[in-house]
């Protein structure tokens, strides 16, 4: 990876960093922070699903682990929230490695892998909902104590910048994946596992690497969620909603691309807000649109928004260029 590879990332992040200067309304900032958390969750999914072709339907397992770790470590054990955050991400990596080891070792792929990840997430949800350590169905409340060393801030902009920095860091990470041997091997596994093996790719190790990274990134999003909303319960942390969000954004934005998850998350939640404005406060209307969009995207725009843009640009170039008969 060279510096030139990350120039677009730096440009996009720098541009976005100015948003809180112009936008100060809390509702808008809330929306932006939430969207960035979803983008981060989806960036994690994209490493495994987009680059590795292993579609997990249970990324809630990682998101929830991050969220609960961040909350419980500080509430129950009094650990500093920043350290809890780091541990939370590592816990996500560990859970990722474990789920990956069990399922990839048994050769699960395709729909079977989707199902088993879904089941792992459900087991964790039920456990978190029942155990007393996790606060059971009542969940965990993080005490409000606004101080930077507590990972709590006066202004929402601070959170926005932290979320943005994390998203930026993962953009760089993803770009590195795209440019590295690990990434090439991961994509090879996605395209054709047998051929990859024949070329000396240790497919198990590569997939494990991907799910571990993926788990860490999505868990970091979970930590951020807990820290922002100061509350976690089983249906939020380990609920299917977040697994679905993790899948939707990369597919809408552009599967297996660096910017796909971010573009997808912004587009989806932007659209969601518009739908809510248009339809009033009908519950579920935004998600209904997302579902339809997923079907349409898979059917007609398999490369997502970024793919559409690329195609548009190409056809614009073609029509702009002088024609030869």
């Amino acid at each position: 990876m060279t510096f030139r590879d990350i120039v677009p990332i730096i440009a996009v992040i720098a541009l976005l960093a100015f948003v809180p200067v112009f936008v100060t309304a809390n509702t808008v900032l809330n929306f932006l922070v939430f969207t960035l958390i979803i983008a981060l969750t989806a960036q994690g999914w994209n490493i495994l699903g987009g680059f590795g072709g292993q579609f997990s339907f249970g990324h809630a397992a990682f998101f929830g682990t991050g969220a609960y770790a961040a909350a419980l470590l500080q509430v129950r054990l009094g650990i500093n929230p920043w350290i809890a955050f780091a541990i939370g991400a590592m816990a996500g990596a560990a859970v990722g490695w474990m789920i990956g080891y069990l399922s990839f070792r048994s050769g699960l792929r395709g729909s079977y892998f989707a199902l088993v990840t879904l089941a792992f997430a459900e087991v964790l949800r039920i456990l978190a909902n029942a155990a007393t350590f996790t606060g059971g169905a009542a969940g965990v409340l993080i005490k409000l104590h606004v101080r930077p060393e507590n990972f709590q801030f006066e202004s929402r902009s601070a959170f926005f910048w932290i979320a943005l920095a994390l998203v930026g860091a993962v953009l760089v990470l993803t770009r590195w994946i795209e440019r590295s041997r690990f990434g090439a091997q991961l994509v090879a596994v996605r395209e054709n596992e047998a051929a990859a093996k024949a070329l000396g790719v240790d497919t198990l190790r590569v997939k494990l690497g991907a799910i571990t990274l993926s788990g860490a990134v999505t868990a970091a999003a979970g930590c951020l969620y807990a820290q922002y909303f100061l509350y976690v319960d089983a249906n939020i942390a380990y609920g299917t909603w977040i697994s679905v969000e993790a899948i939707l954004a990369p597919i809408i934005g552009g599967l297996g691309t660096v910017f796909g998850p971010l573009v997808g998350a912004v587009a989806l939640h932007g659209l969601g807000e518009v739908t809510k404005l248009a339809a009033g406060s009908v519950p579920g209307i935004d998600l209904m649109v997302f579902g339809v969009l997923l079907v349409v995207a898979v059917g007609f725009a398999p490369d997502g928004i970024l793919g559409l843009l690329r195609r548009l640009r190409r056809s614009a170039q073609l029509s702009g260029a002088p024609r030869h008969a």
Binding site: A114, I251, M288, L294
Partner: peptide
């Protein structure tokens, strides 16, 4: 897999 997931989200939320 993805299309049926999309359908499921759409139907449930409808």
């Amino acid at each position: 897999l993805l299309v049926t997931l999309g359908l499921s989200i759409a139907i449930e939320n409808a």
